[in-house]
Design a protein around this nucleic acid. Structure first.
Lengths: 235, 235
DNA sequence: GGCTGATATATTGTATACAATATCCTGAAA
DNA sequence: TTTCAGGATATTGTATACAATATATCAGCC
């Protein structure tokens, strides 16, 4: 058996894609900005050819929009887009949690355990920069969620979740802002872990869904509070 | 508001992709066969450049696998792959049916009605070639299912379903083989329609899930009966 | 001044050339 | 006969050139 992934992963040109993806998610190319191929090419130190492929891939993933003969644009998200995505995330991750309950291995459980613990301890950490903190949180949170998807044992489900979760970090960072919300989030993690340990798929799914809907509501609230819908520019 | 789709649809090079996709789904390039760029290029009457992009896109969609420096291969499906896909289809289409129940328009309902009726009437039709019949059935069936996805009103859900349903026709054609199975399938269509008309989301979802699982079981049975797992070549 | 059309510029889309890599084939040695 | 090395061939990966298209600029006209 060879590589699991369908994409040309770990190849050289694949790195262009990975970097572009990162730049988009981290908000270096903010939503709505034009992605001129030549510019990206010089930014990334390659020719337009691999850039083009990366853009096509990113478009398939929904990170950019390509308009024929008019170029690519970093995708911007409306409130409705976010709602759609959270709806699907709840569905897919809930299902993943359900499946994982009957298949998860001890190694995977302890990996999740560790991630959850790190997230809890980090409430007392102090970070140099706010950005470092967000990175830390996003990273460990990703481990938690990805391990569940992995434990579900459905490769396509993983692919789909990766697509959905590929939302610019700008949006997700709100989530981690307040202490109270982080504590609730940690509580959800513990509940999910418990359900998985007990092999209770229904409860794992229910908790996961609540966890995600909670995140959605926090995000929506912060969006409303923030600079109003201006940040989410509709075309 | 501009185009709904993220891809560079309806553009010129996009057609290369559409044609490649069709060739793959219709089994012209059978699962497991190598997709040499030059060959595709001459087959499609273009240079390697647009072919390459089409391949990248098809890989993102899961129709082909790209191995770094070793080219693309028409994806082959194992039994487990099919099970994974049907599992996700049940989840996503079930959800779509649930959402559609509260949003579907009369126009959409009558479109589905029409498709269902055509499928029923076709039991008495006689077709020139078996292939024509399969095409007819697949086409009307697609209308039925796509309308539900559309009525669900979640663009991402549509995209995901398109990805999942992009299975080589070779597999799907089994489904339509026997009269009894088609009748049961038609019955499911009517049940789903009823539930949608009544706005009963739970029932619509349940029926849709059964419908899809039934299709899965028919497929699996035919696979087992057919040339054994040889047709589903593992690498 | 504002509109219209023509030209210039910027950018995308495609083809081709060449480099990098993998695969195949041949022949010699064990 | 099998195995391995080395070169020949096939194919992918990238850069670049040019064509096609869209956008911007500006002169002329009302």
């Amino acid at each position: 058996m060879e590589h699991l992934y369908t994409k040309d992963e770990s190849s050289s040109a694949d790195q262009v894609y990975q970097r572009l993806r990162r730049l988009l998610i981290e908000g270096f190319y903010p939503p709505g900005s034009r992605l001129v191929e030549e510019r990206l090419a010089s930014d990334l130190g390659v020719s337009r050819t691999p850039v083009r492929q990366a853009l096509v891939r990113a478009a398939a993933e929904g990170l950019v929009q390509i308009f024929p003969n008019r170029g690519a644009v970093a995708r911007s998200f409306t409130i409705d887009d976010l709602l759609e995505m959270y709806d699907l995330r709840a569905l897919l991750e809930g299902h993943a949690a359900y499946l994982a309950a009957s298949r998860i291995t001890p190694a995977q459980l302890s990996r999740m355990e560790e991630a959850a613990t790190e997230l809890e301890k980090s409430l007392t950490y102090t970070f140099e920069r706010r950005q470092d903190e967000v990175h830390f949180l996003v990273e460990h949170n990703a481990v938690f969620h990805q391990t569940i998807a992995e434990a579900a044992g459905n490769q396509r489900l993983i692919t789909m979740l990766n697509q959905i979760v590929a939302v610019p970090l700008q949006f997700r960072s709100f989530y981690w802002y307040r202490r109270e919300e982080r504590q609730i989030s940690n509580f959800f993690h513990r509940s999910i872990l418990n359900a998985l340990r007990l092999g209770d798929g229904d409860r794992a799914r229910a908790m996961m869904r609540e966890h995600i809907f909670y995140g959605r509501d926090v995000l929506l609230q912060s969006q409303r509070a923030e600079s109003a819908p201006a940040a989410l520019d509709e075309e």
